[in-house]
């Protein structure tokens, strides 16, 4: 351990030691919830929702009869649904880390998940040019994006500026474009980070939530691996998490969006957080990258 590391360790230790057992407030062990009780709670919740839905259906029916208004389409999950800063649902540590169940398989054409982008890795300093003339490059330890008369810069956090990197652009709605950087530090590991425009006019790293993995790898709770990719046309950013036997090629797929200015209709959010939407379980065809995807 060098001098700086020793100084850091000692400072952290000194700060932590300031908290002694007697300083803590009266804690209490949280109550546990047994599986049976949990099921009953879920059942009661479902019943309550059904009752509310029934009442709502009656109300809508009455409105229709009066010719005042028709039923609104069911709300779809959006960034604003999950990005309310007062609830902070995406990173709430009390949220159940298991993905919420969704309608499976997903309905409709799944073609938007393909093709997987196959952007090549380039050496540091190489300028990557996108279709509309915008460019991106790793320069001086920063990601630098130039286009439409503006230059955005942001410091890299996990990406090594001295190593080869791939830069993929993805459209993220109100937040604008995101830039997915990938790097392979060794073996089969891979770093993937998404940078977006922050409030200060620079590029910042979008923070993933704790309950859905972002990037590539293996993690507790996701022992079968996960992978993040952009659709080939840059219209979507997705992560797939393998389910069960790898031979089954079944994956739970999430679409990513990013919180940002104006989201939620309230005060502008300052944070740039990745927000997953669970799209359901799909089966990819074999091959890497896969060339087909079907509901399963």
């Amino acid at each position: 351990m060098n001098t700086l590391e020793s100084r850091l360790s000692e400072a952290l230790n000194a700060r932590a030691e300031q908290v002694q057992p007697a300083d803590l407030g009266p804690g209490h062990v949280p109550a546990t919830v047994s599986p049976v009780r949990r099921r009953l709670q879920v059942g009661a919740a479902i019943a309550a929702v059904a009752a509310v839905a029934a009442v709502a259906a009656v109300a809508v029916s009455v409105l229709d009869d009066d010719g005042e208004t028709g039923p609104s389409p069911a709300p779809q999950p959006t960034v604003s649904d999950t990005s309310n800063p007062t609830t902070d649902a995406t990173t709430d540590p009390t949220a159940d880390p298991e993905p919420a169940p969704t309608t499976n398989p997903p309905e409709g054409d799944l073609g938007y998940l393909l093709p997987f982008d196959t952007t090549q890795y380039v050496e540091p300093g190489t300028t990557v040019r996108f279709g509309d003339g915008e460019t991106a490059a790793i320069t001086g330890g920063e990601l630098v994006v130039t286009g439409s008369g503006s230059v955005l810069r942001g410091p890299l956090e996990g990406i090594d500026p001295q190593d080869d990197v791939s830069i993929t652009r993805v459209s993220l709605g109100q937040v604008g474009n995101g830039y997915l950087l990938a790097q392979t530090p060794g073996g089969d590991s891979q770093i993937q980070e998404l940078y977006v425009a922050g409030d200060g006019g620079g590029l910042v790293l979008a923070q993933p939530p704790g309950d859905v993995p972002f990037g590539f790898g293996y993690a507790e709770g996701f022992p079968d691996g996960y992978l993040t990719w952009t659709a080939g046309d840059g219209s979507g950013l997705f992560t797939r998490v393998q389910l069960g036997d790898p031979a089954g090629n079944r994956w739970r797929v999430y679409r990513w969006e990013v919180t940002g200015p104006g989201e939620g209709g309230g005060p502008e959010l300052l944070a740039r957080d990745l927000v997953p939407t669970d799209l359901g379980v799909v089966c990819f065809g074999s091959g890497n990258p896969p060339r087909s995807v079907t509901p399963c």
Binding site: G158, F214, G215
Partner: peptide
């Protein structure tokens, strides 16, 4: 890596 939800390589470089 597990605590932060990032790869081991990212831990090292970070």
């Amino acid at each position: 890596a597990e605590a932060c939800g990032i790869s081991r390589g990212a831990v090292k470089s970070t």
